[in-house]
Amino acid sequence: MTEANENKQTTTADTEAAPVEAADKPAAPVKTAAAKPAAAAKPPVEESPETIAKRAEAQKRLDEMKAILEDKFGEGALEETGLQKFQPTLVIKPEYWLPVVTYLAHDESLTFNYPECFAGTDYPAKGFIEVALYLYSMSNGRFITVKVRTPRDNAEVDSLCSVFEGANWEEREIYDLLGVNFKGHPNLVRIMMDDDYKGHPLRKDFSVWEQQ
């Protein structure tokens, strides 16, 4: 089992469109769509037919979503697309972030009306902070991840408060812990740390000792 696992790891690492940077740098979070079937084809990983079928279906959904969004907003709206295991993931250009999410949430055939998980991640090696939003469509049971990337300095993203009321605190938390400014947020103040706290703890270059 251990062996198989290690094998699998090497395979995934191989197939990733990994930028060539320092060895301890995080792997690319989004695997390109093309890379994944190749991983499935590699022999050491024993993948059951269900896994392959699931992945194929996820791929189909991803292509569908991609087509819908590109049709609506043009080719330039999407930065990158791919699968996270079975989760279709679309990276959206910052300027399209608010309109795309609004469209996803309010369009009658899509109705991604449930914000499931809202997370920000700092990637200093790649120079951006990524905000990921897991959306679920309650009416047709579909789910996707949309992401937006913003440079680490002067990180700024449009606020989604007008789309989901629930984005309010999530965005405050991301602002507090990662230092992303959400434009148009009604009350962007720290939520977890003190109001006069300096620094953003979840950034990778944060150090407790520098706070003193």
Partner: peptide, 21 residues
Amino acid sequence: PAGEYYASVEGAKGELGIYIV
């Protein structure tokens, strides 16, 4: 393995999800 994962369970208070990069 490298990548991003999200999995959730039904917690006592609601959907308890874990997002791992």
